[in-house]
Each structure stands twice: as C-alpha cells, then as structure tokens.
Amino acid sequence: MSQEKMKQYWRTNLRYMVVLLAIWAFVSYVCGILLVEQLNAIQLGGFPLGFWFAQQGSIYVFVVLIFAYYVLMRRLDRKFDVHE
C-alpha cells in the first residue's frame, strides 16, 4: 500500500476512534458522574435518569460501541484492501 493511502487509512481509523471514545466518555463520565444529580431530576420509568446511566445505560452503550467499531473497520479494511 502506498504511503499516502496508508496515511488516509490510519486517519480514518483515528477519526472513528475519537468519535466512539467521545460517546464512551459522554455516557459514563458525563451522564453517569458529572451530570448525575441534574439528570436524576428526570425519571425514566422507575429510574432516575442519571442513576440509570451509571448502572445500566452506559454498559449497554459500551457494548454497542464495540460492535459499531467492528462494523466500521470491516468496511474500511475492505475499502483500502487491507483485510485478511
């Protein structure tokens, strides 16, 4: 693979990572910790919302993030012809 394409592949990978890690930090550190008191004023069924993020929601999002990365990278690998 040419230097230029390699750079492009790596940059796209880094962009995916930054976006996914931003979501990762948002659901856990922002919704589950920093804003938990404000969010707890909102009810989600029987859950105060901040508490739900901390004990349930963030974990569901983590699972989705990893599968999303898998799908994105599978497509990227194919596009740049570096898949196995």
């Binding site: 990572m17 996914l20 990762w24 856990s28 508490f51 901390a54 004990q55 983590f62 993030l65 990893i66």
Partner: peptide
C-alpha cells in the same frame, strides 16, 4: 447504592478501550 456504579462502569468500560486501542 449509586456509589457502587464505580464497579459497574469501571469493570465494563475498559473493554471499549481494549477493543479500540
């Protein structure tokens, strides 16, 4: 109670780092 969330988020969130980094 709520403070126990450190274990729940802490022991699952690391897998996102593992998978991506």
């Amino acid at each position: 109670g709520y403070n126990g969330s450190v274990y729940l988020m802490g022991w699952t969130g690391g897998y996102v780092l593992l998978a991506l980094l």
